[in-house]
Protein backbone atom coordinates (compact mmCIF):
# COMPACT_ATOMS: atom_id res chain seq x y z
CA UNK A 1 0.00 0.00 0.00
CA UNK A 2 0.98 3.55 -0.30
CA UNK A 3 1.66 4.09 3.34
CA UNK A 4 -0.94 6.81 3.67
CA UNK A 5 -3.36 5.51 6.17
CA UNK A 6 -6.81 6.07 4.71
CA UNK A 7 -8.42 8.20 7.30
CA UNK A 8 -12.14 8.73 7.16
CA UNK A 9 -13.10 10.07 10.58
CA UNK A 10 -12.05 13.60 11.41
CA UNK A 11 -12.91 14.39 14.98
CA UNK A 12 -10.53 17.31 15.35
CA UNK A 13 -10.84 19.02 12.04
CA UNK A 14 -12.38 22.40 11.52
CA UNK A 15 -10.15 24.74 13.44
CA UNK A 16 -7.05 25.32 15.44
CA UNK A 17 -6.31 23.77 18.81
CA UNK A 18 -8.23 25.79 21.36
CA UNK A 19 -7.00 23.80 24.32
CA UNK A 20 -3.64 25.54 24.19
CA UNK A 21 -4.18 29.24 24.53
CA UNK A 22 -0.60 30.15 25.35
CA UNK A 23 1.01 32.85 23.25
CA UNK A 24 4.18 34.90 22.90
CA UNK A 25 2.53 37.55 20.79
CA UNK A 26 3.40 40.91 22.28
CA UNK A 27 3.29 44.54 21.31
CA UNK A 28 6.30 44.09 19.01
CA UNK A 29 4.59 41.26 17.16
CA UNK A 30 1.43 43.31 16.79
CA UNK A 31 3.45 46.22 15.45
CA UNK A 32 5.12 43.90 12.96
CA UNK A 33 1.74 42.56 11.89
CA UNK A 34 0.54 46.07 11.27
CA UNK A 35 3.70 46.78 9.33
CA UNK A 36 2.98 43.76 7.12
CA UNK A 37 -0.59 44.93 6.61
CA UNK A 38 0.68 48.31 5.47
CA UNK A 39 2.92 46.80 2.78
CA UNK A 40 -0.01 45.91 0.56
CA UNK A 41 -2.49 48.03 -1.37
CA UNK A 42 -5.19 46.22 0.61
CA UNK A 43 -4.35 45.11 4.12
CA UNK A 44 -5.97 41.70 3.96
CA UNK A 45 -3.30 40.63 1.47
CA UNK A 46 -0.95 40.45 4.43
CA UNK A 47 -2.88 37.61 6.04
CA UNK A 48 -0.65 34.80 4.80
CA UNK A 49 2.54 36.58 5.84
CA UNK A 50 0.95 37.48 9.18
CA UNK A 51 0.13 33.84 9.82
CA UNK A 52 3.73 32.92 9.00
CA UNK A 53 4.73 35.50 11.58
CA UNK A 54 2.35 33.97 14.13
CA UNK A 55 4.08 30.64 13.59
CA UNK A 56 7.49 32.17 14.06
CA UNK A 57 6.38 33.61 17.38
CA UNK A 58 4.06 30.94 18.73
CA UNK A 59 5.39 27.86 16.95
CA UNK A 60 1.96 27.17 15.54
CA UNK A 61 -1.22 28.99 14.59
CA UNK A 62 -2.37 29.97 18.04
CA UNK A 63 -5.84 31.19 18.97
CA UNK A 64 -4.25 34.47 19.99
CA UNK A 65 -2.64 34.67 16.56
CA UNK A 66 -5.95 34.18 14.80
CA UNK A 67 -7.59 36.80 16.93
CA UNK A 68 -4.78 39.29 16.39
CA UNK A 69 -4.96 38.86 12.61
CA UNK A 70 -8.74 39.26 12.62
CA UNK A 71 -8.49 42.34 14.76
CA UNK A 72 -5.81 44.06 12.71
CA UNK A 73 -7.38 43.24 9.35
CA UNK A 74 -10.96 43.90 10.42
CA UNK A 75 -12.21 40.48 9.35
CA UNK A 76 -13.83 37.77 11.43
CA UNK A 77 -11.98 35.04 13.27
CA UNK A 78 -13.92 32.52 11.19
CA UNK A 79 -12.46 34.05 8.05
CA UNK A 80 -8.94 33.88 9.43
CA UNK A 81 -9.54 30.32 10.56
CA UNK A 82 -10.76 29.44 7.07
CA UNK A 83 -7.46 30.65 5.66
CA UNK A 84 -5.26 29.18 8.38
CA UNK A 85 -6.77 25.72 7.89
CA UNK A 86 -6.54 25.82 4.11
CA UNK A 87 -2.78 25.94 3.74
CA UNK A 88 -0.62 23.00 4.76
CA UNK A 89 2.29 25.07 6.03
CA UNK A 90 0.22 26.34 8.91
CA UNK A 91 0.49 24.01 11.85
CA UNK A 92 -2.23 23.28 14.40
CA UNK A 93 0.22 21.94 16.98
CA UNK A 94 3.65 23.20 17.91
CA UNK A 95 6.31 22.31 15.36
CA UNK A 96 9.76 21.13 16.37
CA UNK A 97 12.83 23.29 16.42
CA UNK A 98 13.63 21.57 13.17
CA UNK A 99 10.92 20.69 10.77
CA UNK A 100 11.86 17.71 8.65
CA UNK A 101 10.04 17.09 5.41
CA UNK A 102 10.36 14.04 3.20
CA UNK A 103 8.94 14.21 -0.28
CA UNK A 104 6.83 11.20 -1.18
CA UNK A 105 5.03 12.37 -4.27
CA UNK A 106 5.32 9.80 -7.06
CA UNK A 107 8.81 10.48 -8.34
CA UNK A 108 10.57 10.93 -5.02
CA UNK A 109 8.57 8.09 -3.50
CA UNK A 110 9.67 5.68 -6.19
CA UNK A 111 13.27 6.77 -6.07
CA UNK A 112 13.58 6.24 -2.34
CA UNK A 113 11.43 8.83 -0.62
CA UNK A 114 9.14 6.21 0.89
CA UNK A 115 12.08 4.39 2.41
CA UNK A 116 13.53 7.65 3.68
CA UNK A 117 10.33 8.62 5.37
CA UNK A 118 10.15 5.23 6.99
CA UNK A 119 13.71 5.54 8.16
CA UNK A 120 13.41 9.07 9.53
CA UNK A 121 10.14 8.26 11.18
CA UNK A 122 11.65 5.26 12.91
CA UNK A 123 14.71 7.18 13.96
CA UNK A 124 12.75 10.09 15.40
CA UNK A 125 10.10 7.85 16.84
CA UNK A 126 7.32 9.97 15.45
CA UNK A 127 4.98 9.77 12.50
CA UNK A 128 4.15 12.51 10.03
CA UNK A 129 2.55 15.58 11.60
CA UNK A 130 4.02 14.72 14.97
CA UNK A 131 6.65 16.38 17.09
CA UNK A 132 9.23 14.66 19.27
CA UNK A 133 8.56 15.00 22.99
CA UNK A 134 11.71 17.09 23.42
CA UNK A 135 10.38 19.55 20.85
CA UNK A 136 13.43 19.13 18.68
CA UNK A 137 11.91 17.66 15.55
CA UNK A 138 8.65 17.57 13.74
CA UNK A 139 8.06 15.47 10.69
CA UNK A 140 6.00 15.95 7.58
CA UNK A 141 5.24 13.93 4.49
CA UNK A 142 5.74 16.44 1.70
CA UNK A 143 4.17 16.82 -1.66
CA UNK A 144 6.49 17.70 -4.52
CA UNK A 145 8.84 20.48 -3.46
CA UNK A 146 10.04 21.61 -6.91
CA UNK A 147 13.41 19.90 -6.69
CA UNK A 148 12.73 16.73 -8.69
CA UNK A 149 16.07 16.80 -10.47
CA UNK A 150 17.60 16.35 -7.02
CA UNK A 151 15.34 13.45 -6.01
CA UNK A 152 14.93 11.98 -3.50
CA UNK A 153 14.46 15.24 -1.66
CA UNK A 154 14.17 16.16 1.97
CA UNK A 155 13.66 19.58 3.47
CA UNK A 156 14.81 20.92 6.81
CA UNK A 157 13.03 24.08 7.85
CA UNK A 158 12.16 24.52 4.17
CA UNK A 159 15.79 24.38 3.06
CA UNK A 160 16.72 21.94 0.32
CA UNK A 161 18.44 18.71 1.28
CA UNK A 162 19.06 17.28 -2.15
CA UNK A 163 19.91 13.80 -3.40
CA UNK A 164 19.24 12.16 -0.09
CA UNK A 165 20.31 8.67 0.85
CA UNK A 166 19.69 6.71 4.04
CA UNK A 167 23.23 7.45 5.17
CA UNK A 168 22.87 11.17 4.57
CA UNK A 169 19.52 11.20 6.33
CA UNK A 170 21.03 9.42 9.30
CA UNK A 171 23.88 11.89 9.50
CA UNK A 172 21.56 14.86 9.05
CA UNK A 173 19.33 13.90 11.95
CA UNK A 174 22.29 13.06 14.16
CA UNK A 175 23.94 16.38 13.44
CA UNK A 176 20.80 18.37 14.04
CA UNK A 177 20.13 16.46 17.22
CA UNK A 178 23.65 17.27 18.39
CA UNK A 179 23.28 20.94 17.41
CA UNK A 180 26.14 20.57 14.95
CA UNK A 181 26.39 22.99 12.09
CA UNK A 182 24.40 21.76 9.11
CA UNK A 183 24.03 23.50 5.80
CA UNK A 184 21.45 23.10 3.10
CA UNK A 185 22.77 21.73 -0.17
CA UNK A 186 21.27 24.73 -1.96
CA UNK A 187 20.74 27.18 0.83
CA UNK A 188 22.01 28.55 4.07
CA UNK A 189 23.17 27.21 7.36
CA UNK A 190 20.26 25.59 9.16
CA UNK A 191 18.81 27.69 11.96
CA UNK A 192 15.31 26.78 13.05
CA UNK A 193 11.85 26.39 11.67
CA UNK A 194 10.65 29.45 13.51
CA UNK A 195 13.38 31.62 12.06
CA UNK A 196 12.47 30.29 8.64
CA UNK A 197 8.85 31.27 9.20
CA UNK A 198 9.95 34.79 10.05
CA UNK A 199 11.72 35.12 6.70
CA UNK A 200 8.63 33.80 4.94
CA UNK A 201 6.60 36.42 6.76
CA UNK A 202 8.74 38.94 4.94
CA UNK A 203 11.40 39.86 7.48
CA UNK A 204 14.78 39.18 5.90
CA UNK A 205 17.46 37.49 7.95
CA UNK A 206 20.27 38.82 5.76
CA UNK A 207 21.56 35.40 4.78
CA UNK A 208 20.71 35.37 1.11
CA UNK A 209 24.37 35.18 0.19
CA UNK A 210 24.98 31.83 1.83
CA UNK A 211 25.06 28.68 -0.28
CA UNK A 212 25.78 28.10 -3.94
CA UNK A 213 24.13 29.84 -6.82
CA UNK A 214 22.79 26.60 -8.16
CA UNK A 215 23.03 22.88 -7.64
CA UNK A 216 24.87 20.58 -9.98
CA UNK A 217 21.73 19.36 -11.71
CA UNK A 218 20.63 22.93 -12.36
CA UNK A 219 23.92 23.62 -14.10
CA UNK A 220 24.05 20.42 -16.10
CA UNK A 221 22.65 21.72 -19.37
CA UNK A 222 24.80 24.83 -19.24
CA UNK A 223 27.87 22.72 -18.55
CA UNK A 224 27.19 20.45 -21.52
CA UNK A 225 26.53 23.44 -23.75
CA UNK A 226 29.81 24.98 -22.71
CA UNK A 227 31.62 21.74 -23.40
CA UNK A 228 30.02 21.42 -26.81
CA UNK A 229 30.29 25.10 -27.63
CA UNK A 230 26.53 25.43 -27.92
CA UNK A 231 24.81 28.72 -27.31
CA UNK A 232 21.84 30.76 -28.28
CA UNK A 233 22.36 32.56 -31.60
CA UNK A 234 24.60 35.63 -31.82
CA UNK A 235 25.88 35.56 -28.31
CA UNK A 236 22.29 35.40 -27.24
CA UNK A 237 23.10 35.95 -23.65
CA UNK A 238 21.04 38.85 -22.47
Amino acid sequence: MSGHEFQSFFPDSGGVDMTDTSTNIDATTLAEMRQLASRYPEARSALLPMLHLVQSVDGRISPAGIEACADILGITTAQVSGVATFYTMYRRRPGGKHHIGVCTTALCAVMGGDALLEQVSEKLGIGPDETTPDGKFSLERLECNAACDFAPVMMVNWEFMDNMTPEKAQQLIDDLAADKEVSSTRGAKITSWREAERVLAGFSDGRADEGPSAGEASLLGKKIADEKGWAAPKGGKA
Binding site: F10, S13, G14, G15, M18, P63, I66, E67, A70, I75, T76, T77, A78, Q79, V80, S81, G82, T85, F86, Y87, T88
Partner: peptide, 21 residues
Protein backbone atom coordinates in the same frame (compact mmCIF):
# COMPACT_ATOMS: atom_id res chain seq x y z
CA UNK B 1 -21.96 38.39 9.23
CA UNK B 2 -19.18 36.08 8.07
CA UNK B 3 -18.97 34.27 11.38
CA UNK B 4 -19.14 31.03 9.46
CA UNK B 5 -16.70 30.29 6.68
CA UNK B 6 -15.46 27.40 4.68
CA UNK B 7 -12.52 25.93 6.54
CA UNK B 8 -10.04 23.14 5.84
CA UNK B 9 -9.31 22.02 2.29
CA UNK B 10 -10.17 19.41 -0.28
CA UNK B 11 -12.16 16.43 0.89
CA UNK B 12 -12.04 17.84 4.39
CA UNK B 13 -13.48 21.18 3.45
CA UNK B 14 -16.34 22.01 5.75
CA UNK B 15 -18.35 24.87 7.09
CA UNK B 16 -16.81 26.15 10.28
CA UNK B 17 -16.80 28.88 12.81
CA UNK B 18 -14.12 30.07 15.16
CA UNK B 19 -14.59 28.31 18.48
CA UNK B 20 -14.74 31.54 20.44
CA UNK B 21 -17.00 33.47 18.12
Amino acid sequence: DPFIALVERGALQQVGRYADE
